[in-house]
Amino acid sequence: ELTQDQKALISYIVDAHNKHRIPQDMAKKLLQEQFNTEENFLLLTEMATSHVQVLVEFTKNIPGFQSLDHEDQIALLKGSAVEAMFLRSAQVFSKKLPNGHTEVLEDRIRRSGISEEFITPMFNFYKSIGELQMMQEEHALLTAITILSPDRPYIKDQQAVERLQEPMLEVLRKVCKLQHPHEPQHFARLLGRLTELRTLNHHHAEMLESWRMS
């Protein structure tokens, strides 16, 4: 079912996605630094900055991305960074990390001054991603598809972005059929998560404001 080019695209994107990790020392700090609201706030902010840098490195590897207009590249990244980061965090949370790291991370997020009305939908999203039992190919492709959304604000050449996103969607559709043969709805469910991500993205801007105030 998959053509040679599609297989090459998958392995290329999965490889880039696997390299898409925050530095080891940052991850260690998250699990070791002492624990108070102020510290959690600073650590989560530092981690977010590091995660954006890592996300940009991943995005540079998306075939065709660097051939897009430079300002459109920035508009795409700016419009999708938060969503791609939530998707990546969902993957981390749905993979059982060794000896309780997930619990420590979750606790740190819950006790960093972020309002409960935002934390609940975020962890619901992580749970819904976990339930889909996504394979790494699906995560890598869905992240690329999220970034290559032509309808982000300030995109000048939407067709150019569509031409990159469409083959990715086609490959993801085939991958879902191959990896989830008994779940014809699987691909549709993945796209449904993209809508949920948009809502989270919208709340995130509000949350950031109120978090900074408190």
Binding site: A48, V52, V56, E57, H70, I74, K78, R212
Partner: peptide, 21 residues
């Protein structure tokens, strides 16, 4: 903390250089 402008700065710098710089 990374305000939206901060986000754009981080993206511009990362797009220009690579991680090691």
């Amino acid at each position: 903390p990374a305000s939206n402008l901060g986000l754009e700065d981080i993206i511009r710098k990362a797009l220009m250089g690579n991680m090691e710089e």
